[in-house]
């Protein structure tokens, strides 16, 4: 397992390949459907410093507020493909070096990963309680008016486990598995 410290740089990201298992350390920011649309259409200036050389997490967590202090209760990945229309622009505009999610993303995001130097990191879907244990501190929340799942949660993580499934060299494990399974499907449908 490789440790990946955030913020990171292009060289470190380019050294990662599909199949690599990494442990994330540092600050990540959650963003899902509403946040992605907002980033691309409104282009808010205050979000960029949070995301530059860091990682976005596709996640709509359950968060507890205990005497004014936020704590992540449950925070697994959500399906990433819904952000496919936006992600390439987000990588370009905000200098994001990685995206954590589940299920993988499409050709537009893969191309952006190659062009700008970013990776897609797959977390285990449904393992929300376990992933939340790697979240040491909620540093802040922005746009809470979007609702708890859709807000930007800024979180400090320690050893958050992920697998690289799309790298900055144009390779996608999801594309490979889809091609293989399509062949099996075609033979079964005959």
């Amino acid at each position: 397992m490789k440790k990946l410290y955030l913020p990171t740089d292009e060289k470190t990201i380019r050294s990662l390949h599909i199949g690599d298992e990494v442990l994330l350390n540092g600050t990540i920011v959650t963003a899902r459907d509403t946040a992605h649309k907002y980033m691309v259409t409104e282009k808010p200036k205050d979000i960029k410093p949070l995301l530059k050389n860091s990682v976005i997490y596709h996640c709509g967590p359950i968060v507890a507020n205990e005497s004014g202090i936020w704590r992540m209760v449950c925070a697994g990945p959500t399906t990433s493909i819904r952000e496919e229309p936006y992600e390439a622009d987000v990588i370009k505009l905000y200098g994001v070096r990685g995206v954590i999610g589940k299920g993988g993303m499409g050709p537009k995001t893969l191309e952006a990963c190659k062009k700008y130097g970013a990776v897609y990191l797959h977390a285990t879907g449904g393992c929300a309680a376990k992933i939340a244990e790697t979240m040491e501190e909620v540093l802040e929340v922005r746009k809470l008016e979007f609702g708890t799942p859709e807000a930007f949660w800024v979180i400090r993580v320690k050893d958050f486990p992920c697998t690289v499934t799309m790298d900055s060299h144009g390779r996608s494990l999801h594309e490979i598995i889809e091609k293989k399974s399509r062949k099996v499907l075609e033979s079964l449908l005959k």
Binding site: G60, I62, C74, T124, A129, K130, E133
Partner: peptide
């Protein structure tokens, strides 16, 4: 492995298995 660990943890601590309930 991650799944099996999550199941044990959620049961022990009464935490939702998945954030999407």
């Amino acid at each position: 492995k991650a799944i099996m660990e999550t199941i044990k943890l959620s049961r022990k601590k009464s935490i939702p298995l998945c954030q999407d309930t």
